[in-house]
Every structure is written in C-alpha cells, then in structure tokens.
Design a protein around this nucleic acid. Structure first.
Lengths: 182, 182
DNA sequence: CTATACTTACCTATCGATAGGTATTAATAT
DNA sequence: ATATTAATACCTATCGATAGGTAAGTATAG
C-alpha cells in the first residue's frame, strides 16, 4: 500500500466534508498508520498537500470525463455524461465537490491551493465549452456562457442537496439544464 | 458600541471569507477590544456564536428581501430584487454568502450551526416560491422547482465568481434565470 | 445590593513544523 | 564481489503557537 496515496485519499475524504481545516497531519497519519511527522516527508507543508489534493482531484475528474468529441461519436450526450459525474460524486460519495468547497473558502486558502482550485474551474469550463460547441454548434461565447451556467448550477445544487440532506434538490436543479439546449 | 454585535460583525466577515474555522475567539476579541475569555460571556461556546451568526444572517437577508406581494404591487420584479441582493453581497462585500459557505462544510459543523444554516435555505426557497407563484401564476410544485433552481444557480455562481476572481461569472450565470420565466 | 460586562490567570488539547536519528534498499565506485 | 554513498521511508521527541474553554475576581451602573 502506497502511504502517500493513502494520505491523499484520507485528506480528500475529510476535506470534501468540511474543507481545508477539516483534516490535520495527525488525523491523516493515524488513519494510514504512520506518525504525523512522517507526513511531512511526503508533503513538506499542509499547503503542498492541499495543492496536490486539488490537482489530483482535477486530473481524476477530467480523466473520468474523457474526450467530448469521442463521447459524441459514440452517440453519448456529453452534457448528460457531465451531470452524471456530479450526481455520482454527490450520491455515491455523499460528499461535496472538493473544489466547490475549496472555492467557497478560497480567500482563506494558501496561494498554491487556491491556484489549483482555480484551475479545476477553468479546465471544467473549457471542457463544457468544447462539448457544447461540438454538440450544439454554438458560438465560442455562447458555449462558454452555457458552460459557466451549467457548472454554477451543479456546484450550487450539490451544496444545497448536502445541507438540506435530500438528493431531490439536485434532481430538480439539473432538470433546468435541458431548457437551455437548442 | 455594542460588543456582542461587534463580535458578530467581525465573525461574519471572517466566516464569509473562510468558513467556520476562519474565526477564533481570540481574533474576534482583539478586533472589538476585549479579552478572549470575555467572548464566552456573550456566547457560551463557539457553536452558540456560529448558530447566532447564521440566524442573524438569515433574518437580515429576509428583512432586506421584504414581502414579495408588496414588491409586485409596487411594480418591482421580486426575482430581479432577489438577484440584486445576491449581487450586492458579492460585489459590495466581496464575500461569499455566509450560509453558502456553511452549507458546503455543513457535515463538519456543530448541530445547531448546521440547523440554522438549513433554515436559511428553507426560508429562501419559501420566499422565492411565494414570489414566483404570485408573479407567474405557477403551480406550487413548479414554483418550488424554479425557486430551487434560482437559489442553486446564485450560490454556485457566487462561489465561482470568488474563486475565479471575476464578477463576469455571476453576470453570465444570472442571465440564464430569464430563460425560465413564463 | 445586584446584575451586567468585563478582567486576570489559567487549563487542556491540538495544530503545523522541525531536528535528529534509524533501518532498509538502491546506486555507484573500487 | 565488496565497500561506500546516498536516497527512501519512516521514527522519537519536541517546539512555539493557537484553539476553545473555565474559575475567580473586579469595576460600574441602576
């Protein structure tokens, strides 16, 4: 078992429940069976851990998304696919989007964590924009606007589903995405 | 000057930037000019302070919203009015919605803070639902669905505007609210 | 005299971080 | 093949700072 990966997994789980301050070196160390001082071997500072957390989360998310063009050629709607990934993060994990939470508290985060959180949103907007351009033949601007709309709605709906403790909120909100399709 | 209110103001400012863990009794005490132990006189525990924070935020927000029927009778669109309040919170304060942030980290919050955060969303959905019923003559269910949609979108757009450091995101997202009007 | 609004002086628990040390393994030089 | 060096992955012990919280005392206003 890779301790570094185990630390990131433990940190991600805690961060997705309560943010950057919801995990500590001691807790993570206990969970993976090492001492808290040893966590510093893998991650010099907590900011390094947080930044790598956001980076890995983004990479995994984009990897799970795949290529929009490839999805379309396989007859799949990339927007539906995108919504499904958010739904899975909410229902299967019962946790917030890591970067949604980091984003909300970004003003209080170390610079490198904030930067990687920002990249999550930029890359997600790019992915959605590209998918919408290909799928609906919108202009660059119109596709980007729709991308911003979809991502905003999904993040907000996810947060409200968690605090109101019902997935119905997410279902209701996502139904409105259809109304902007051409 | 009322120290208790000053403490709540200081706490709200910090919480809206970095969440529940972004304010401490010591910091708040320093800001208002008393000792940290004295904060316990006004708020026995941090959870009490957090709960009162969310409660006061909700009350102030609903008070600023006013009565939907009264707005309509004055020829004002309550939905536009609602969006304007969120826009103000974002642009004038340059901070997140307190309950949007608390909501995202609600799984790690003390029960009474979580409860009051939940009430913010329930009361806001009720307000929006009532406004939409009166304004557009929708059924109860349809109006509630639209309310959930609007609130989700506004919270998500606010978060993304902050992390991407541009109010354009909020503008783009809110334009899509028109598309669901009858 | 009593309630209000603090103060001083603590406590315990935890935080991220550092210094210095120890096995084990891998790479390199002789 | 053997000796030396160095990297890996931890350890113990401790640091100063900060967290929330408590008990007992004090000044002040009605």
């Amino acid at each position: 078992m890779n301790k570094k990966e185990a630390l990131l997994n433990a940190a991600e789980s805690k961060a997705r429940l309560g943010g950057y301050s919801n995990f500590s070196f001691r807790e993570l160390a206990n969970e993976v069976g090492i001492k808290s001082a040893s966590v510093h071997y893998h991650f010099p500072t907590k900011a390094d851990l947080g930044a790598e957390l956001a980076k890995r989360y983004t990479e995994n998310f984009l990897c799970a998304l795949g290529d929009p063009a490839a999805l379309i050629s396989r007859g799949k709607d990339p927007i539906e696919h995108y919504i499904e990934l958010f739904r899975h993060a909410l229902i299967a994990d019962k946790k917030m989007c890591l970067c949604g939470l980091f984003g909300a508290e970004s003003d209080a985060l170390p610079e490198k964590v904030k930067l990687n959180t920002k990249l999550f949103f930029e890359k997600n907007i790019d992915w959605l924009q590209s998918a919408i351009e290909k799928l609906e033949g919108d202009t660059t601007v119109k596709a980007r606007n729709k991308a911003v709309f979809i991502l905003s709605l999904l993040e907000g709906a996810m947060m409200m589903s968690i605090v109101l403790d019902t997935n119905e909120i997410f279902s209701i909100a996502t139904k409105f995405i259809e109304s902007i399709k051409n």
